[in-house]
């Protein structure tokens, strides 16, 4: 893949005159391409599954897909409304978890890691380090709409509540028709929730709130201890961001397959 020299930038007067925009000879285009494909695949999967309004709940074991939680519409199948019914029947294509999905989308869209990922792979700003971006103008996050990225901490607060809700769903799913029970679906849901907590608590806004904003750690030992834990997660935020996309899809797909009767849940107890 080659790139052209933009109007300004590395071709600006005074800089070394080199005809090519980048002299990188490695496969610098591979990472943004993979990120583009990965994020696009997740978005397409999520749109299809949430718009389908089907196969999101297994009544026998109380498995509820995270893509449909909380299910608060009269359209929800009986037993899936863990928080009650707040709305009437939804028309087709409207996600049943309309209360939480926009907030989760906002959390991930304004996440410091995902910003890097989609600025590079979707907006090519820049596509890779020392590779010129295609546009001559650039204002970064100084103007609307990108200045709105600064509300990330509010989305983080909502994401905490939603992680708690996912935890509740995972606990409630330890059921069978005869009472307590668990199967492979529970293992998948618990692992998903644990990783979601890892992603949520590793948020850079969380790191700032715990103790990042203070200058005297020695006066706040508990906050400093929390900050160290969050810093560990935060350093792995990218890994958690990708793994949780995978576990969300896995959890939803497994529940969909069991719900549709394509496979039987592998039961360990009950």
């Amino acid at each position: 893949m080659t790139s052209t020299v933009p109007a300004s930038g590395v071709a600006a007067p005074g800089r070394a005159r080199i005809g090519q925009g980048t002299l990188r000879s490695d496969r610098w285009w591979l990472q943004p391409l993979l990120v583009f494909l990965g994020l696009t695949a997740f978005v397409v999967y999520g749109l299809v599954r949430t718009a389908s309004q089907s196969y999101y709940f297994v009544p026998a074991y109380q498995y509820l897909s995270p893509f449909a939680s909380p299910c608060v519409s009269a359209s929800c199948v009986p037993g899936s409304s863990h928080l009650g019914v707040w709305f009437g029947t939804f028309p087709p294509m409207i996600p049943l978890a309309i209360v939480t999905l926009p907030l989760l989308l906002g959390f991930r869209l304004s996440c410091y890691y995902y910003r890097k990922a989609y600025y590079r792979s979707f907006w090519l700003s820049p596509p890779a380090c020392a590779v010129p971006e295609p546009r001559a103008g650039y204002t970064g996050e100084t103007r609307f709409p990108l200045i709105v990225q600064n509300v990330h901490r509010y989305f983080f607060s909502f994401a905490l509540l939603i992680s708690a809700l996912n935890t509740y769903d995972a606990v409630k799913a330890f059921q069978s028709p005869s009472g307590f029970g668990f199967g492979l679906g529970n293992v998948i849901m618990v692992v998903n929730v644990a990783l979601l907590w890892g992603y949520t608590l590793g948020c850079h806004s969380c790191r700032h709130i715990t103790a990042g904003r203070i200058n005297h750690f020695s006066r706040h030992p508990v906050r400093y201890w929390l900050w160290q834990r969050v810093s560990w997660l935060s350093a792995r935020h990218m890994q958690f961001a990708w793994i949780t996309l995978g576990t969300l899809v896995l959890t939803d797909a497994y529940i969909a397959l069991v719900s549709a009767g394509v496979i039987d849940d592998l039961r360990f107890v009950g």
């Binding site: 890097k116 970064g140 100084t142």
Partner: peptide, 15 residues
């Protein structure tokens, strides 16, 4: 100092 212009694509950290 233009902090808002930074879109945190992390090339500075990489190099």
């Amino acid at each position: 100092h233009g902090l808002g212009l930074c879109n945190i694509t992390k090339c500075c950290t990489e190099v």
